[in-house]
Amino acid sequence: VEVLLESIRLKYREYGIDREPFVIIKADAGSYGMGVMTARSVDDVRDLNRKERKRMAASKDSQAVRQVIMQEGVYTFETVGDPPAVAEPVVYMIDQHVVGGFYRVHTGRGADENLNAPGMHFEPLAFVEPCNTPDCGQAPDAAPNRFYAYGVVARLALLAAAREMAAHG
């Protein structure tokens, strides 16, 4: 946790990001939102109380957690609804093509919290038009351009996952 947070801090300084970095720790075998925690320092992990340890010890289907993964926490700045609720886009792909998606929404969580928790709901991402290219005639945050950006990020994530799989067999 300490090494990853320091690495993120360096990148935040390099890019002028004025936010506190955090990491997400979750069960490597899948979580369904269980066995997930946020850490902003090594003390957050070291000082887990008994209840928190028990919560982190089991994941989906009450399986014991044997391994965890740590990843950089990413702030969620998307909101949907009235009043606005924090939302994260989830994009579906077939091969390299974006085919749809939804927003995971949680009215009781903040921009730096796991939204995959009790109380969440889903809102459809309405891809009214194909979003293969940006619409230069509209604002950057117009729906077609946001959906285009989501698609770019999804394709980059797919490429990164493929490279990682190839490198690690």
Rank of each mutant, 00 (worst) to 15 (best):
V86H: 00
A64N: 11
E72F: 07
V90R: 15
P89V: 03
G73H: 01
T76K: 11
Y75I: 10
H97V: 03
V90L: 09
Q63Y: 12
T79L: 06
M70D: 03
A85P: 02
V98R: 01
M93S: 04
E72Q: 14
T76D: 03
Q96N: 04
A64S: 08
I69G: 08
V86D: 02
G73T: 03
V68S: 00
D95K: 12
D95G: 12
Q71Y: 03
D95Q: 04
G81S: 08
V90Q: 10
I94N: 02
G73V: 03
F77L: 15
Q96Y: 00
E78P: 02
R66T: 15
V90W: 10
T76M: 14
A85V: 06
Q67H: 15
P89Y: 01
Y75S: 13
V98F: 01
V91P: 05
D95C: 02
G73E: 04
V80H: 02
G81A: 14
V65K: 12
Q71R: 15
M93H: 01
T79A: 14
T79C: 11
S62G: 02
Q63F: 14
Y92C: 09
I94V: 02
E72H: 10
M93Q: 09
P83R: 15
V98A: 06
M70R: 01
M70W: 04
V90G: 04
Q96R: 08
T76N: 12
V65D: 06
A87I: 04
V90M: 07
Q96W: 04
G73P: 11
V91G: 07
H97Q: 07
D82V: 15
Q71C: 07
P84S: 13
Q63P: 07
T79F: 02
G73C: 08
P83Q: 12
E78F: 13
F77R: 08
D82C: 13
V68M: 11
Q71I: 04
M70L: 15
V80K: 09
P84W: 08
G73L: 09
E78W: 05
E72V: 10
F77Q: 11
Q63G: 05
V74G: 02
F77D: 14
E88D: 08
M93G: 01
Y92S: 06
V90H: 14
M93D: 05
E78N: 12
P83F: 14
V65R: 08
A64E: 10
G81I: 15
F77P: 06
Q63I: 05
Q67K: 15
P83S: 14
A87C: 04
V90E: 07
M93K: 03
F77W: 15
G81T: 11
A85F: 00
A64I: 11
E78C: 12
E88V: 10
I94F: 00
G81C: 09
M70I: 14
V68N: 05
Q71L: 05
Q71S: 10
V98T: 06
P89W: 03
A85W: 03
V80N: 07
I94P: 00
A87M: 12
V91E: 02
V65F: 04
E72A: 03
I94Y: 01
Y92I: 08
A64W: 11
A64K: 14
I94R: 01
V90I: 14
P83W: 10
Y75M: 07
V80D: 00
G73I: 05
V65N: 14
V91M: 08
V68P: 10
D82G: 08
P89N: 05
M70E: 10
H97T: 00
D82I: 02
T76V: 07
M70G: 09
Y75E: 09
V86Q: 03
M70P: 01
